[in-house]
């Protein structure tokens, strides 16, 4: 039964790694920025599934911090690299 969660987590991990390929190939910098979003959603999902699969409540705290930090990284990407004063 709980094998299902880990299977799901595995699929998500492969999805994340596949997504990272876009960063390597991505022509523009914006494509690299998508990584932060990718981790925001997939990383959190993996952690939640693992917390259910391994029956380990702490992972939900980590998922919460993950979500916060992915948001910070995305904003940092968008603002620090492209935003601000366009001379």
């Amino acid at each position: 039964m709980s094998g299902l969660y880990s299977l799901a987590a595995l699929c998500l991990l492969l999805a994340v790694l596949a997504g990272l390929v876009r960063i390597l190939r991505g022509p523009t910098e914006a494509d690299s920025m998508l990584a932060a979003q990718l981790f925001g959603t997939c990383g959190v999902a993996i952690l939640l599934l693992l917390s259910k699969g391994l029956d380990w409540v702490v992972l939900q705290d980590i998922a919460l911090v993950f979500a916060l930090l992915a948001a910070l990284a995305a904003v940092a990407f968008a603002l620090r690299t492209w935003g601000g004063t366009e001379r």
């Binding site: 914006a30 979003q37 979500a67 904003v75």
Partner: peptide, 20 residues
């Protein structure tokens, strides 16, 4: 957590699109 991810990803999607 879900609400947080929703807010964060929609906001950052907007910022990235505006920056692009």
């Amino acid at each position: 957590i879900w609400l947080l991810v929703l807010i964060a990803s929609s906001a950052s999607c907007h910022l990235v699109a505006r920056a692009a």
